[in-house]
Amino acid sequence: MSLFMKRNKPGVVFNTQILWRLNSTVAENKDEEEFRVLDILKKKDSRQKRIVRRAEVAPDRAEKMPTDQNWGNVWPGPRSFHPSSVPLPIRQGYVPKGQVPPGKKANAELMKIPNFLHLTPPVIKRQCEAIRKFCTEWPKLLNSEEAIDKHYPVEIITSDYCHASPTIRNPMARVVTLRIKLANLDLDKHAKDKFLRLVGDRYDEKTDLVTLTADRCPLRKQNLDYVNYLLTAAYHEAWTVEEWEKEKMEDDMEYYVWDNNQSKRNLIDWYHRVSGTEQVLSDEEYRNYDISSIPHAKEYKEAVSNLFNEGESEETIEKYGGTVRKLLGLPERTV
């Protein structure tokens, strides 16, 4: 009989079924009758007897989940990973080669990374269906990017922020950005030139976009008004021609215009000399001279302009050389 009792000391883990787990150990001093003595040298074997108490802990709820459940109900919102609620055999973590990454339980690697368990495709679909009733129909004629660009040339970009905090304000929300394609603005050559000088590096040549950003006012509305004002003012200013702008000399030019320069005169003079019809021309006549009558003059003009505007490079120089040979009727360069 005593034997039967012996085998059933507390703390025996039951065999086949997980009914509950052991989770805490409680120290208990058996001989409370005795006066306790400080045992410095540990003479007596006074190791405290540990009694294991078990609390009833149910198995993971992931084990009870049916396979056809609606995952959106289980994981409705963003949340850090929890192993007992996710019925997936996930592993994560760096281990030396040949070992298996640790499983999902007590795995900090899985908890650290943001997960998208709340945004599975069926859930996204369902949510879209739910908020569809708040959406209006898309205007029919705005059916392409080009149409949108044409009818809505001005783009205003703002950001809204959402926090888990009692305040709903975010200072970044005041920033307003206005974008417009330069081609959509009605500008002539002078105005365009002046506009670009005014906006400076806010113009991006690659995309042809002018981007104006305002964050100097405390409210979004004020910043919005301000970017509108900036665009309007720059536009106005681009169209006005000041008196002093007429004083602009060849040296003030920001780029090389072949028609205004000596190169054209030389070409025309040379042409006339060669064709034997030398004549004296005024500045105006030089400028408006139609060079299409001169063979290869167009190519020459381009080559010279490029050489000045883009700077000396192997390509431009080579091109210049080639056109000059053509112009003078010399054979192609052979290396």
Binding site: N23, A58, A62, N73, V74, P76, S85
Partner: peptide, 20 residues
């Protein structure tokens, strides 16, 4: 769009086997 999950405790409790 979110329905009831019969395996989960009420949301006022921690979703953890030791605390359900």
């Amino acid at each position: 769009t979110v329905g009831v999950d019969p395996t989960a405790p009420h949301f006022k409790y921690h979703d953890d086997p030791f605390l359900i």
